[in-house]
Amino acid sequence: MHYAIHHIDKVISTNDLAFEVCAEKEPEEGTVYVAYEQTAGKGYHDNIWVSEKGKNLTMSLVLCPGFINPSEQFVITQLISLATADTLKTLIPEHLIRIKWPNDLYINEAKVGGILVQNSIMGDRIEYTVVGIGLNVNQREFPESLPNPVSVGGYTNKDYELDDVLKSLLHYINVRYTGFSKYPDRKQLQDEYLKNLYRYQDLAAFKDKDGIYNGRITDVDAYGRLEITAQNGAKKYYNFKEVEFVLTN
Rank of each mutant, 00 (worst) to 15 (best):
P93R: 00
I173F: 07
V112R: 07
V131T: 05
S120A: 13
A110E: 13
Q118G: 02
N148S: 13
P184S: 07
E28D: 10
L57H: 06
Y155Q: 11
G66A: 07
V175Q: 09
M122Y: 11
V50F: 11
V34P: 09
E161V: 14
T156F: 00
D221R: 05
H45Y: 13
D219F: 07
K55L: 12
R186W: 08
A230N: 09
T77L: 11
E72Q: 15
L194D: 06
N148M: 04
L91G: 00
D191K: 14
P70L: 05
N138I: 11
I107E: 03
P102T: 05
A205W: 04
L146I: 15
M1W: 03
K42L: 13
K182I: 02
T84P: 02
K53N: 10
G154L: 11
L203D: 09
F19K: 15
S51T: 14
Y198E: 09
E72S: 11
T87F: 03
T14C: 07
E144C: 04
K235S: 12
D104A: 12
L226A: 03
Y200F: 15
Y172A: 00
D124N: 15
T84G: 14
Y33V: 00
N148K: 06
V152G: 04
V220L: 05
N69Q: 11
T31N: 10
N103Q: 12
T58F: 01
F142Q: 07
P102S: 07
